[in-house]
Simulated assay, not measured.
Amino acid sequence: MPDQLTPPPPSGPHAHAPRSLIVTFYGAYGRGFPGPVPVAELVRLLGAAGVDAPSVRSAVSRLKRRGLLLPARTGAGTAGYALSDAARQLLEDGDRRVYGARDSGGGWVLAVFSVPEPERAKRHVLRSTLAGLGFGTAAPGVWLAPARLYEEARHTLERIGCAEYVDLFRGEHLGFAATADAVARWWDLPALAGQHEAFLAEHGPVLDAWGRRADTPPRDAYRDYLLALDSWRHLPYADPGLPAALLPDGWPGVRSAAVFRALDERLRAAGERFVNGDREAPAG
């Protein structure tokens, strides 16, 4: 569930910027609201993840200016924010990445583009868009990704107004180098491995801690799930699910995906109870 406004996390602990957390919240829970999410609820729910009220309001304003959130009144007449159509499309695309299978087969989709010199600024737009979708670079103007990303790439290029400059193909790699060696040129595998290791360093201990608990308090579950999802949702775009046979032995993406799936199974539903106002009774 990308927002295409926040960059991928660096190869260290994820910073959990307020704007990113709001996008993550809408992707995980906000679409389940019966209408616009009230501002007071955004403050409460982001507060549970450590974001103060002024930071929430500032981040919401930036997302509104970028066209992801639209101001609207709730059924009770209070101020709230709804997702724009473009934001919903981004989140729906993201669902397949974030929660779908990581491994892929079935060849490649190639994107070959040529931009006239008078419109050369669109070259940067195309390169950054394809990189954001997880495409690797085979040669200048020639990008590729696992074939299952074709539909998402197609309507993303249409949405940004660059489809006329791009031809898309499906194909196989036939040599001359071994495909695993070629993949290591097309993607920066050490950098991708570093992002997976950073996720494991931050959220592996969280999963271990939950494994020692018999209870699942909704507020704690919501906080830990939102932070894990906020870190994880960038990874399926940096690493688009390259075939396991083409990756180095012991690829950390296998472990990071397993940690996220386990956190999702343990925490997501309990977190939804907190979102809906089901708070555990105070201790004592």
Score class of each variant (00 low, 15 high):
His124Arg: 15
Gly80Lys: 01
Ser11Ile: 03
Ser61Met: 07
Leu189His: 03
Ser58Gly: 14
Thr137Asn: 07
Pro190Gly: 10
Ser231Val: 00
Arg31Val: 07
Ala53Asn: 00
Gly105Trp: 03
Ser104Met: 04
Pro36Val: 00
Ser256Met: 02
Val183Ser: 00
Arg213Cys: 13
Ala138His: 04
Pro252Thr: 05
Glu172Pro: 04
Leu110Thr: 11
Ala49Tyr: 03
Gly106Gln: 08
Ala53Thr: 01
Gly12Ala: 14
Gly77Gln: 02
Glu265Ser: 15
Leu110Arg: 09
Leu246Tyr: 00
Asp85His: 12
Val125Gln: 11
Asp52Phe: 01
Asp215Lys: 13
Glu151Leu: 14
Val56Tyr: 10
Gly27Ile: 08
Arg88His: 09
Leu42Lys: 03
Gly77Ser: 03
Leu42Ile: 02
Leu83Pro: 05
Ala244Arg: 00
Gly161Lys: 11
Gly241Phe: 05
Ala198Phe: 04
Ala180Lys: 00
Gly141Phe: 06
Asp215Thr: 15
Trp251Tyr: 13
Val51Asn: 07
Glu280Met: 01
Trp143Ser: 14
Leu46Gly: 04
Ala145Leu: 05
Gly27Trp: 06
Pro34Trp: 08
Asp85Lys: 12
Arg148Ile: 06
Ser61Gly: 14
Ala53Gly: 03
Thr137Pro: 00
Ala191Met: 13
Leu246Glu: 00
Phe25Gln: 01
Glu152Ser: 11
Leu70Cys: 10
Ala238Thr: 11
Leu267Thr: 07
Asp215Gly: 12
Asp264Met: 07
Arg127Leu: 10
Arg66Asn: 09
Leu69Phe: 01
His173Trp: 15
His234Ser: 13
Gly211Trp: 11
Arg233Gln: 10
Asp230Trp: 04
Trp186Leu: 07
Pro243Met: 01
Gly241Val: 06
Ala59Asp: 00
Ala198Cys: 08
Asp230Val: 04
Leu70Glu: 14
Arg154Asn: 07
Leu247Gln: 00
Pro190Asp: 08
Val254Asp: 01
Ala153Leu: 08
Leu46Asn: 09
Ala209Ser: 14
Leu42Gly: 04
Tyr26Cys: 00
His173Asn: 06
Gly47Ile: 07
Arg159His: 13
Gly67Glu: 02
Glu117Met: 12
Asp239Cys: 03
Ser84Gly: 01
Gly134Arg: 08
Gly105Ile: 02
Arg65Ala: 15
Arg148Lys: 13
Asp215Val: 14
Ala180Glu: 03
Thr78Phe: 02
Ser231Arg: 03
Phe25Val: 01
Arg266Val: 08
Val39Gln: 15
Ala221Asn: 02
Gly27Tyr: 07
Ser231Cys: 10
Arg19Glu: 12
Ser84Met: 01
Glu280Asn: 01
Gly204Asn: 10
Trp210Ile: 07
Arg44Gln: 08
Ala221His: 01
Ala191Gln: 14
Trp232His: 12
Asp230Asn: 13
Pro38Asp: 04
Ala49Gln: 04
